[in-house]
Simulated assay, not measured.
Amino acid sequence: MSSTKDIEALIELMAKMPGLGPRSARRAVLHLIRKRALQMTPLADLMTHVAATARECLNCGNIGTSDICDICNSEKRANGQICVVEDVSDLWAMERTGAFRGRYHVLGGTLSALDGIGPEDLAIPRLKDRISAEDVTEVILALNATIDGQTTAHYIADVLGPSVSLTSLAQGVPIGGELDYLDDGTISAALSARKSL
């Protein structure tokens, strides 16, 4: 029996993580083993704790350690705005900016005929329920600028109809972006969404 069987199994598991391949996983595992007292043991303890306590918010779909997340529990965030995102990682990206002070709604994906994801697979009915229950006046569709994201946005717009104000994120040239490095679609979107100075 190999004396490194468990270590190899750990490397294989780490390599399945997003952003890590076999080489990166090997380097990470070797680093953790070398620093086991300072990093590996606390990491293992915390992972065990999070595995036991992490759950999806019953209201918006965010991930936390309680049934209703801090954002949904905050009365300060009840300003009539809900920002609809595809995934929890998108919610966290929006929160990092500190620019949005309303509440969120995680769809859990986008409509995709190729992947067999239909409206019943997403949290769209729950969104409809929240709009009336929380006195929502604006729904911001912060979905990815992909075909599936745009299809999902149009579907949500049709489902919600004129009952609420619908907006979407602006698309175009990023801050610090140079036109020469941008794709044609981004330049076209920026040109059509231009504003006066």
Rank of each mutant, 00 (worst) to 15 (best):
I124M: 01
T65S: 12
Q171W: 12
G116R: 15
T110Q: 09
A113I: 03
Q171L: 12
D90I: 03
G98Q: 00
G149D: 14
Q81I: 15
D158W: 12
V173L: 10
L114E: 09
H105Q: 08
L91G: 02
F100G: 03
E75G: 04
P162M: 15
D70M: 13
D129N: 15
F100R: 01
I68T: 08
S165A: 13
F100M: 10
K76Q: 13
G118P: 07
I71T: 06
S74E: 08
D115H: 06
R103N: 02
Q81A: 12
S132Q: 06
I117D: 00
I68D: 00
A93D: 03
V136F: 04
V84N: 12
N73W: 07
S74G: 10
T146P: 06
E95Q: 10
D67L: 07
S165P: 03
E138G: 10
L111P: 11
T151K: 08
A78T: 07
A113H: 02
D158V: 02
D87E: 15
G176R: 03
Q171S: 13
I82N: 01
A113D: 00
R96G: 04
R126N: 10
L143I: 13
R96C: 07
G149Y: 14
E86W: 03
D135V: 05
R96F: 05
A78L: 13
E75W: 11
R126L: 12
S165W: 15
D148M: 11
I63W: 05
T110E: 05
R101V: 09
H154Y: 15
T137S: 15
R130T: 03
L141S: 09
L111I: 03
I71P: 04
V85R: 06
L91N: 01
N144R: 07
L166Q: 11
K76T: 14
V159F: 05
W92Y: 10
I117P: 00
S112C: 07
A123Q: 09
N79T: 14
V85T: 06
Y104R: 02
T167N: 01
A113K: 01
N59M: 15
